[in-house]
Nucleic acid binder design. Structure first.
Lengths: 223, 223
DNA sequence: ACAGTTAATGACCATGATGGTCAATAGTTT
DNA sequence: AAACTATTGACCATCATGGTCATTAACTGT
């Protein structure tokens, strides 16, 4: 264990010496298996098969399945932290800020298609062996991210007769639903960037619909 | 196999002779295990433990795990069909119709807390042993239900500048999100009917918010 | 070319869980 | 008390599990 400049303790495993690409392949293999089966029922045999490495290698990189699981969690935490850091606090329009975050998520999903699914799935994780550590590692992070996401938003744009909290919930549920729908559509596109454009474009329509519904005025028009 | 008056073939298993209550307990045990682990990784040992019956009994009622799985699917299909039958076609307001269906779902969830989760989870089912039959059994049913759900709805109530399909999607995603949120809240209530009232009340606020956003006029007021 | 070092492999193992069976028991009906 | 049905759980062959480690492959500096 050594102390890095960024002020965090890093455990040096063999894994860190691998190329970023190989690390990514292994992380994705583990992530998809953990998403599908949870901690207890996940299989290291299945993970090495998906990652196309040998059993021996996996257990050289990580001392146990639990060790791997926690590493994957930290991997996810880093990604969320990165996205959180990217939030531009000078952008005070909620829709625009959320669109920016959505774009970031999309970029990341190109390389790690299931990280966000994995992080979400940990909430359902029932294995007592890991669930305590999960909450410990993820709890604070989520609070921090959510807080920054809504920091300095200009709520005066919303209609006065509206319950803003509920409106935001609806916006979130819409984003989530739209994201799920996007996953299905993605398979029908071959070109990824082409899909990206289409995706962003379609989202803007949903966003516009909600803006014209929740905001007092938009594009100069007043309600 | 006998032919019933309703025009469907019914396979008589020992299971049908049990009291409805016991059937329900066993169904719920199977459902929750299938939801949690999917077909392949689900365990009959776990199911009998949850249902508090012996292994022998389970395999007297059903000839195999697969047999049980298909029975559970039919069980779910019957529930969806029942709800579909209850749809009142004279109610032409989308929000009201959807609220009625939501209420039906809520009643059913008192007795079978996870049926809908189970039916939803079958979409992710990857076991080749069962996935074909799933699509066969559920595909037609969903089409029929969705069709009836939107049959005869008065779409003239919607704002003219709005994309109605997208608005309906948002409504669906909101219902789904609200349902999930309700599950978490339910635990904090002891009295179930008390929760039911609270739940319906809160939904009405979301519905009102969306109505004032998507409709031209509401409660007599014109936009 | 070669010795020395590190990385990667997969056959192997003890353990435990699996779906399903069936002789035995308990409960009910005649 | 006999005949029948419903329920039980110990039992079984099979197989997948997390983890090991002797062996092989790949790389390194000279």
């Amino acid at each position: 264990m050594t102390y890095s400049e960024k002020g965090v303790y890093i455990i040096y495993t063999l894994f860190n010496k691998l190329t970023k690409e190989k690390q990514q392949v292994i992380m994705n293999a583990a992530i998809s298996e953990f998403v599908q089966s949870g901690f207890d029922k996940s299989s290291t045999n299945e993970i090495v098969k998906r990652a196309k490495i040998s059993k021996g290698s996996l257990f050289n990189y990580f001392t146990s399945k639990k060790d791997l699981y926690f590493y994957v969690i930290d991997y996810g935490v880093q990604i969320i932290n990165y996205i959180t850091e990217q939030i531009d606090l000078t952008e005070r329009d909620l829709f625009q800020r959320i669109e920016n975050v959505g774009l970031q998520k999309m970029y990341i999903q190109q390389k790690n298609p299931q990280v966000f699914d994995f992080l979400a799935s940990t909430k359902q994780e029932e294995s007592h062996e890991v669930s305590d550590i999960i909450n410990q590692k993820l709890g604070a992070m989520y609070d921090k991210s959510i807080k920054k996401l809504y920091e300095g938003i200009d709520y005066t744009k919303f209609r006065d007769d509206i319950d803003i909290e509920k409106a935001i919930e609806i916006l979130n549920w819409t984003m989530f639903g739209f994201g799920e729908k996007g996953l299905h559509q993605m398979r029908t596109f071959e070109n990824v960037t082409e899909f990206g454009e289409h995706y962003l474009n379609e989202w803007k329509q949903y966003a516009h619909l909600l803006k014209t519904s929740f905001y007092k005025e938009w594009d100069g028009e007043i309600r």
